[in-house]
Design a protein around this nucleic acid. Structure first.
Lengths: 273, 273
DNA sequence: CTTCAAATGGAAAATATATTCCATTGAGCC
DNA sequence: GGCTCAATGGAATATATTTTCCATTTGAAG
């Protein structure tokens, strides 16, 4: 929602009573049809409001705009703002490999994959489950973070965010072969965040199962309800990352861990943990 | 989502490979920026796509539209359709800080910041500079990666990607106090990638200047032409990350380093490095 | 190398749209 | 009723935008 549109809308509300008849007609129309105003010409708006085109321009000037174009811009910004946040399946080119002959096309492809991933995340996330996940993680004495292979950068990022807030945590899997030792300290007063997507690193699955055996409350970020890292508790959040050119976006994962980290920080400061 | 836009988009995908260069440029642009196309004139679209206005009209006619207005209408319909379907709950957000009391609102805010960052990246990236940056980095004997504080996760991610492709690289700044030693090996046959945004870690600026003194060809990812990490060569790429709730998105940075890494890998395999 | 068709760029022409100006009308006050 | 001022309508003017046309360039085939 754009600031300029909101400001205009508020002023319109305040001044409505003192507007002359024709300007009231226009006020009614633009506030009822903001999406259309974004594309209408002066003439079309005048027609719909049953006023003369010059009255449209006077209306815009009455509210401090230089002219109609200036006035219409706030409706365009508003519409643009709504669209940019909408969950949307972007159409992909049929031959992504053919299109990837120059670097800007690579950028476009990765951009696409990231947008797709982000919008899917927005659409799929269940707010109630999200709050429960935060509850579990925030109440863990120590948060164990498990993410191998392609998920490792995300796991490390989550660790980085927790470190900034001095929240006790431990990354499982930083040093090859040390994973088993890291698990020895894990117990039911802790919590764990698992990050794993198809094709699910076998080691991740193995370590996940050990954490379950040790009774550690687990939250999993994974892409599918049939994933092998779904906890018995049912505590999992869907994060699906789109691929481009053999690389998987991690934009959605990053937004999710940022969200979790911030919410955990808020929870702990509010509850004096 | 409108049928006409979908039909056009599908046809665009099918015919993309056989399109001549300028029409490909337009295809890339319109499919990446449908929200903007809804409001752009022929001239503005031509400018963004780096083609002549008449080419825009030819593009529209190539896909069966009578002219640009007819073509643009499908983008307007699409945008209009998105707005009318927009989840109403998001329209009620009046003040981001007030709204950040629950986790889903945090997610939405981070989502917004990421989308904004990604779209800005797509818009601001100069394809020629991008190709030059890849040229420099791919030809470096060893790629030095410098990104401290909030840029460190991105720097590490770039390192991770290079490691997957067995490209020689070195991260400067992994271990506190070891930065100077890392620089001793840097020389003009190498290359460096600097990742730094306002407020520009002073240590980053200092190390950047040392790299310049040692004659290492540098590519900087930074947010502003007045940034203190602009190389003398002018080799910098604009990446602006939006903030939400005190945290800065890194979505655009990640997409950029993925693009660079992939392009470097392609370049090196094509040139047998 | 030549030829030909397609692609491209650029300018002129046609059309559309926004803005400005001014005469007329309507409302309120004395 | 007359006067004043704001509101309104409508046309002219200015500006912007789209469309069309054509010369030049490019790339592929023989």
């Amino acid at each position: 929602m754009t600031d300029r549109y909101q400001i205009f809308s508020a002023e319109l509300g305040e001044r409505y009573a003192s507007l002359p008849p024709r300007l009231k007609q226009l006020a009614d129309l633009v506030s009822s049809n903001p999406d259309d105003v974004a594309h209408w010409t002066v003439s079309i708006l005048a027609l719909h409001a049953n006023v003369q085109p010059s009255t449209v321009v006077r209306f815009a000037r009455t509210f401090g705009f230089q002219g109609y174009s200036d006035f219409q811009a706030i409706f365009r910004e508003r519409l643009r703002g709504l669209a940019s946040s909408y969950p949307e399946r972007l159409q992909t080119l049929k031959n992504p490999d053919d299109a990837a002959h120059s670097t800007i096309n690579l950028l476009t492809g990765f951009h696409r994959a990231a947008i797709t991933s982000l919008n899917s995340l927005q659409e799929k996330t269940n707010p109630l489950l999200l709050d429960q996940a935060v509850d579990i993680l925030a109440n863990g004495r120590c948060i164990h973070i498990l993410g191998l292979r392609r998920s490792m950068p995300v796991a490390r990022y989550f660790a980085y965010l927790l470190a900034k807030m001095a929240i006790p945590h431990q990354v499982i899997g930083i040093e090859s072969g040390m994973e088993e030792e890291a698990l020895l300290t894990a117990n039911p007063t802790d919590a764990a965040l698992i990050i794993s997507y198809a094709s699910y690193a076998p080691k991740t699955v193995e370590l996940f199962q050990k954490l379950e055996e040790r009774g550690v409350p687990i939250v999993s970020l994974t892409d599918n309800k049939n994933s092998p890292v779904i906890p018995k508790s049912g505590m999992w959040l869907q994060v699906a990352e789109a691929d481009f050119h053999g690389f998987r976006s991690n934009a959605a994962s990053v937004v999710m861990v940022m969200t979790l980290a911030t919410a955990i920080g808020n929870y702990r400061s509010q509850n004096l943990i």
